[in-house]
Every structure is written in C-alpha cells, then in structure tokens.
Nucleic acid binder design. Structure first.
Length: 541
DNA sequence: TCTTTCACCTC
DNA sequence: TGAGGTGAAAG
C-alpha cells in the first residue's frame, strides 16, 4: 500500500525495515519503486529496523499482512472504508501472520487507526484532493484482539484476524468501534505487546512493537466515492456477492428491483460510468502526491516493518500528508480523557445496560479468528516509565484478571489517552464500556505534525515524544516491508480463553498528556523502556 | 454529505 | 434459520 498512500497523497510510506525474508526484501524492493519519489525515506532502500527490540525479546517478531495483494490493489486505486453510525467492518479485512514470538510468552495484539495527515479530502474529477484542514481527531480507540492475551504459540498458529473491528463516524459511539471522520485519511497500525504477569501491560517491563502496513491506509467515507473501489469491494467481499454477476444477471436483478423490464442499466455500471475516468489514485496520478508508481507492478508494495524512523513508516507524503509517525498518531497527540471500552462477546451479560439497549448491537463479538499472515518488526523499548504520579500503578495490571468472561471479544479502548497501565488484557478483552466512559467523547485537537520524527534514536525520540506528550508509537513501529501471502488457516481463536476479570468500570481518566493518543499511550506504557521517566501523559495532564 | 432502507448475500 | 454484512438508492 505504499502505493495506496500515494494515492491519497499519502504517498510516502516508510521504508520497510527489518526485512526478514527474502520475500520481504523483494517486496520491499518493489515498493520502493512504487513509492513516490518524493519521499525521502523511500529513497533509502536500506532497511531500517524500526523496532529494535533489543532486550525485550521483541526483536525477532515478524508480521506479515495477509492478502497483501488485495490490499495493494485497493491501495492502488485509493482505498476507501465506509463508516456508518452503527459501525462498518473494514474490507479488506486486516489479518496478519505473526512469527518470531516466544511460544510461551503471552502477548496482547491490538490495533488502532491513526490519522494519516491533517487534511480533509474531497473526491472530485475522479480523484482525491485536499479540501481543507482535518477535523479534530476523534477520540482514539484501541481494538484489542479478542484472543488477547495469548501465547506466542497461539498467535503464531494461525492468522490473526481483526475482521470484526468496526469503523464508525459516531463520535458518541458506545460500542467501542473505532471512530473516524469521513473524508479523512487514516492508517491502521498493529501493536504487539508483551503481556505482563497479570496478562496486562503497562508495567515497567512491558515491551511492544508496532507494525504499519502502508498499503492499509485508507480514506474514511460514508459512501464510496471512487467506483473502482466499489467494484473491488463487490468483486472481493463475499457479502457483496449480491452485487456481482454478469451484466445480464445484473440487468435482470435491477429490473426486478425496479419493477421494470429490461433493459435496465446496472446501477453499478451507471455509477461507474459516471465516475469512471481514470483513477485518481492510479499511480500515475495520485492526486495527492504524485508518485509515479508503476501501475503495472501490481501490488508490490511494501510494508514497512518497524522502521527505524517513524516517519518512514508513515511516510509523510510529499504534500504533507504525512502519516503521523507510526508511533504518535496525530490523533493521539491530543489528550482526551482516556476512555476505555470493553466489549465482551457476550452480548447481554457483559454489556452495560446502556449498551444493551442499543439497537445496533451489543458488544463486539468477534470470533477470534486469527487468520493471517504477516510481517514483522518488533520493537522493544526501554523500560516503561513509572506510573505517573498520582496514578496508581497499573490498575490493569494490578487488577488481576480473574473473572471468567465467557467468550472473548475484541475490545476497544477509547480515549484520547488510554493508559497502558490501565489496560489489562483481562479488562479489555472482556469488559464492556461503561456508559460513563462512553458518554463523553472529546475530539482530538487538530492534527499536529510530530516534529521530531526524525531519525533520532528511539530512546531520544521517545523522550521527545514524551515531552510532547504525544507518544508516538512510530518510534516503535516496525514497518513491515513485506507481506506474506500465505493465508493461514483461519484461526478460530479461542474465544474463550481464560477467565478474565472485567475491567473496572470504565472511567475517564484524568487527562494525561494532551497529545497522547490512547494507542500511543498504551504503547508507551507498555514499553516502559522507551521512556522511563514520568510518563508523558502523566506529565501532560 | 449523511442517514436510512432495501434486497441480497454469507455465515 | 436467523443474525448480520453488503452496496445501491432515495431522501
């Protein structure tokens, strides 16, 4: 998707680093080609390990994006993801294969989606273009894989699927879905966190690494803008099968729907024709940043592993579309009271009353299916900073998970600044958000580029970030340079794993750092090593 | 642009 | 069999 980025103007993606497999290297190579020249980072074809997980044991972790080819296809056109009030899944689904994990060590896998830049886009003349400044970022939320925490053996056994993750434009979403703004660009990120003794993270020794696949960047929309994307969705998404078919079939279907006889022009065709001009995102003309990518080279994008430089990961587009360094998503930068949403698979039981009432649905239920492949890039960080003053030690960690939650579901963390320490696997995975937590949602302040995503050493960076109060995962992020194509068996993850304790009632946390995004926040905390001092967020608050 | 509704489809 | 995921279209 490096390409994809381009389309959006995201063009620049961090180079993939830490390529581990030949394949990766290969892919990476291609990606470079595809990437817009503009991105300096790309220029350097040298892999830069983003996540240098030295001591924390995260160094050998590799993550491969499943169905990378498909992602690349979408990216080539300019991926769009529908967001609805009730929440809409992503397609292609985000699935990864993870290798290099210690079989016996427990890890927590989570995702977050950070702003790709601080612009608002519009689709006109068959291409995307910047139309203004981005709306304030929505409260950051983390989607914790329902199988978390689980052993490295578990995660490695099959693809890890985040297909249950849903996107919404409802700022007050009570379900824990990831909240996004329409017509804004986003970059999904995967975080692998080593669970602490309490199956949580946030303790001082927590290590984590972040993986960013540039080809998974997308623009959130309430309705598809580019018919090419619509077609790709219809062709590849099983649930849209009803919209496929020969023209003849479609004509019949349309006629039936419209109560007319032939000929009826298929809607899709109509729409497509109307819009189908060149694809704005086509490598040739990505509106945002023209990256001359070889269109032909299909999908050879690269994923960044952990890149040494966050910037690379989310390479800033020429225009400026710089994805926030992986680490510190722009969003994250703002401080909102962290909100944590937990969902359990159990619909009713675990959900707060308010949630149950909701017509849409209850909690996340996700099957934990892990399917996927992936890339890697680990990053370990310095010991986590001590708990912020005034803050109890990792509540999460402190609070053991004991209660049996039944089936697990993925949980989302919301909050501008979720605190890692607050996150306890047990908690997130199984608990549902409390009403209170859900209620107040603040938007993040406008995106602010992270100044320093320069290539400073992680440590430094972290510090810097910390100071900024916006921790950037990026620093830890590993860009996966390549993806594996193998599709693993879908994992039916254990939906019920162990008993877990519900997280304490969701509560809003005091604001920590203004800039920390939950994800980062978590991340930061997780890696204590990265920054040891007082957590930024704490300071920020 | 966004929301709602619909028929069709997967699971 | 039903819950729920799709894009299209109307408003």
């Amino acid at each position: 998707m490096a390409n994809g980025g381009d389309q959006f103007g995201l063009a620049e993606r961090p180079d993939s680093h830490c390529m581990d497999s030949p394949k990766e290297a290969k892919q990476k190579h291609s990606s470079y080609t595809l990437d817009s020249p503009a991105s300096p980072q790309k220029a350097s074809s040298q892999p830069v390990p983003t996540c240098t997980a030295d001591h924390n044991g995260m160094e050998g972790i590799k993550v491969f994006l499943h169905d990378r080819e498909l992602w690349t296809k979408f990216d080539g056109v300019g991926t769009e993801m529908i967001i609805t009030k009730a929440g809409r899944r992503m397609f292609p689904s985000y699935k990864v294969k993870v290798t290099g994990l210690n079989p016996k060590t427990k890890y927590i896998l989570l995702m977050d989606i950070v702003p790709g830049d601080d612009h608002r886009y519009k689709f006109a003349d068959n291409k995307w273009s910047i139309t203004g400044k981005a709306e304030p970022a929505m409260p950051g939320r983390l989607y914790v894989h329902p199988d978390s925490p689980a052993t490295g053996a578990h995660w490695s056994r099959q693809l890890v699927s985040f297909q249950k993750l849903k996107l919404t434009n409802n700022h007050l979403d009570p379900f824990g879905h990831i909240i996004l703004n329409s017509m804004h660009k986003y970059q999904p990120r995967l975080h692998i966190v080593k669970a602490d003794e309490n199956n949580g993270f946030g303790s001082k020794n927590t290590a984590f690494c972040t993986h960013v696949f540039s080809e998974t960047a997308f623009i959130a929309v309430t309705s598809y803008q580019n018919h090419k994307i619509t077609q790709l969705k219809i062709e590849n998404n099983p649930f849209a099968k009803g919209f496929r078919g020969s023209d003849d079939n479609e004509l019949h279907r349309m006629a039936k729907l419209q109560g007319k006889d032939y000929p009826v022009v298929p809607r899709s065709n109509v729409r497509q024709r109307a819009c189908s001009t060149g694809s704005p995102f086509s490598r040739e003309g990505r509106s945002l940043h023209g990256s001359p990518e070889a269109v032909g080279s299909p999908y050879s994008c690269e994923n960044g592993l952990s890149s040494g430089s966050p910037q690379q990961l989310l390479r800033a587009p020429p225009t400026h579309y710089a994805l926030p360094p992986p680490p510190p998503p722009p969003q994250l930068q703002h401080g909102h009271p962290p909100q944590v949403y937990h969902c359990t698979k159990r619909k009713a039981e675990n959900c707060s009353p308010g949630i149950r009432q909701h017509p849409f649905k209850k909690c996340f239920t996700g099957r934990s299916s892990s399917e996927g492949e992936s890339y890697y890039h680990p990053s370990s960080y310095p010991p986590p900073p001590p708990p912020p003053p005034g803050r109890p030690n990792n509540p999460l960690t402190d609070s053991p998970c004991s209660s049996e939650m039944g089936q697990r579901q993925a949980c989302m963390f919301a909050g501008a600044e979720p605190r890692l320490d607050e996150l306890n696997c047990a908690s997130w995975s199984y608990s549902c958000p409390l009403p209170s937590a859900m209620t107040p949602v603040e938007t993040y302040p406008p995106y602010t580029p992270h100044p320093p995503y320069s290539s400073s050493p992680q440590g430094s960076r972290l510090s810097a970030l910390a100071h900024q109060s916006s921790p950037s995962l990026g620093e830890h992020v590993a860009h996966d340079p390549y993806q594996s194509q193998s599709s693993g068996p879908s994992s039916q993850s254990s939906q019920n794993i162990h008993s877990r304790q519900l997280s304490p009632p969701l509560r809003q946390y005091p604001r920590y750092a203004a800039n920390l995004s939950p994800p980062l926040y978590h991340t930061l905390e997780t890696h204590t090593h990265i920054r040891c001092g007082v957590p930024e967020w704490s300071a920020a608050s």
